[in-house]
Design a protein around this nucleic acid. Structure first.
Lengths: 330, 330
DNA sequence: CTGAAAGCGCTAACAA
DNA sequence: TTGTTAGCGCTTTCAG
């Protein structure tokens, strides 16, 4: 099949080590360098990363574990991460654990067996137990969207609380008092944080939190539509609505359109994520958009930095600001 | 670090080969089997796939190349494929080439260097040139959504033409004559096929194709919205609309809602893909839904079968039927 | 059924 | 600078 370094050595008349050092940035005489390059072309040589990996104990593989690839937020981050890592020769193995803790464990097992060089995870489980072995084996771990207790690794977060607080504050400043919240599922970190932000905004403006204005969805389109429906039914006096993730924002828009609720005349609206959707909506939606590209970039860079050697300094925390994008829905 | 087979041999007092054959389904005396298992537990042994790969020339890696991970159609297929392959010990490396031919080539290079055991691709390029080397090296290739000339590999397709033809026929049977089509971009295989289906339906029912009723989008939400807008403006007499991919369906719904076009009273509507969205819409959308799960399943199974040895029989073609899901939009 | 030994393609001392 | 050599952890003959 493919040519090996041995073949290159034979072809050039050089020693094996010279060839190897050519590929590893060592010093090789100009003349020999040329010879080697000619031989590479001639034999169509390509370095065998598997063999190299056996020797160096590196796989150039990065494991990624996410709750749902079908959630655009995940997909966007992955796309960015994969792109960057690939430019540095790392391959990204993505496991979708479907928001299931057991599947998540299996995914971690899988990656561990595979001996990935590093792990990137958007955790479903609340505990960081499964990550310890990676860290114990000195493999960098980068966590997205959650701070895990007792795990010393890099975390890249969005300031969910502030994002929602700011959004809701805008509604308040626009004279809204009865502001509904489509919240996410229980026991999900981002969901909890966002609810905190909602409460915070009201409190800071001296308004009382009315629990009946909070309706929970499950971060899906259908769930969002239902949550909105029930809120519209139970609280027809609501004058503004904040929806706390993208999929539910789509669901909410569908439900509102169906009922013919006019935005912003009858209901002010702030959605979440996905500029493209917001722009395409009519009226253009005001949204809180998480910086997925930046998240992806930081995650990838941090991973690369750790892989490059900085593996022993304590984990850092990046807390990014969400962006508020003004539309015409308030 | 991790224990090796050598360690197991030492621990159990058996030979290296016995250990190896234990892991490879060979015959091992029951007593020794137990001993080995105890040792595995004790030493926390895990087989090193890298070393194994060097020897067997298998990486247990499958390369995947897709145009856009953010397109839900891709994400759904990948999710399914990844899940199945993982159950068989294969890791999936996904490269998003952003519908760019050059990036696609790079992705193929990347996978080839990585020595993936097989390749799954939803091609952007029209040519199958880049796939040949995989096939030459006896690595199975499965192509999704397109038949590539001169490449002998398995193809999993959806009958796009029929899908659209059937959908449009339903509109015709519901007495619509002026049926708009939101088509996809030029030079994209699926897009062309779907347009063919549209023409076919009209022809078969003795209707003339009016080119001004066809508007092109670019398979994105925004593009879909724009295409619909221009069609509504130029052909206010249009009584039904067929949208030929998911993202554009979302865009179309947004535009229609904005304009207050009532479905189905003023405009009958058939969208594409994504049941969840169709259900969540109001009125519930009639859609043509591609069987992403089935596609994923067949792709994965076919890949596994080839990897399992059937690598030399000529490539097969699977042409799947899209499903028509009746809503209340006609 | 089990053990000894060779070697997959590469890296990394160590010598020269 | 370059060549020699010894493995990385595993599979796989080939004997026993």
């Amino acid at each position: 099949m493919s040519a090996t370094m041995k073949d290159l050595a034979k072809e050039t008349g050089l020693g094996l080590a010279t060839i190897s050092s050519y590929f590893n940035g060592g010093n090789v005489r100009e003349k020999n360098r040329e010879k080697i390059e000619a031989a590479i072309k001639k034999l169509d040589f390509e370095i065998n990363e598997v063999a190299r990996g056996l020797k160096t104990n590196h796989t150039k593989l990065i494991g990624v574990v996410i709750p749902e690839l079908e959630m655009i937020y995940c997909a966007q981050i992955i796309t960015e991460v994969e792109d960057i890592l690939r430019n540095y020769g790392y391959a990204t193995i993505v496991c979708d654990c479907r928001s299931d803790v057991k599947r998540e464990e299996e995914a971690l097992d899988f990656h561990f067996h595979r001996r990935v060089d590093g792990l990137i995870i958007m955790p479903t489980s609340r505990s960081g137990e499964g990550l310890k072995r990676f860290i114990d084996h000195n493999k960098p771990v980068v966590v997205i969207d959650r701070k895990l207790p007792d795990v010393d690794c890099d975390c890249v977060l969005v300031d969910n609380e502030k994002a929602v607080k700011d959004g809701v504050s805008r509604l308040i400043k626009a004279k809204h008092q009865k502001i509904g919240l489509i919240a996410g599922p229980k026991d999900v970190y981002t969901s909890d944080e966002r609810i905190k932000g909602y409460r915070r905004a009201l409190e800071e403006h001296g308004l009382e939190v009315d629990e009946t204005l909070i309706s929970r969805g499950d971060y899906t389109i259908g769930g969002g539509a239902k949550a909105v429906a029930s809120l519209l039914d139970s609280r027809p006096d609501m004058s503004a609505l904040f929806v706390s993730n993208y999929e539910m924002t789509v669901g909410a828009m569908i439900e509102l359109n169906e009922r013919g609720v006019r935005i912003p005349e009858e209901l002010a609206f702030i959605g979440y994520d996905n500029k493209e959707f917001a722009y395409a909506s009519n009226p253009r939606l005001s949204i809180v958009a998480q910086p997925t590209k930046v998240i992806g970039k930081i995650v990838a860079q941090q991973m690369l930095e750790r892989l490059g050697g900085d593996s022993k300094k304590p984990g850092g925390i990046w807390k990014l600001e969400a962006e508020y994008i003004e539309g015409k829905s308030i």
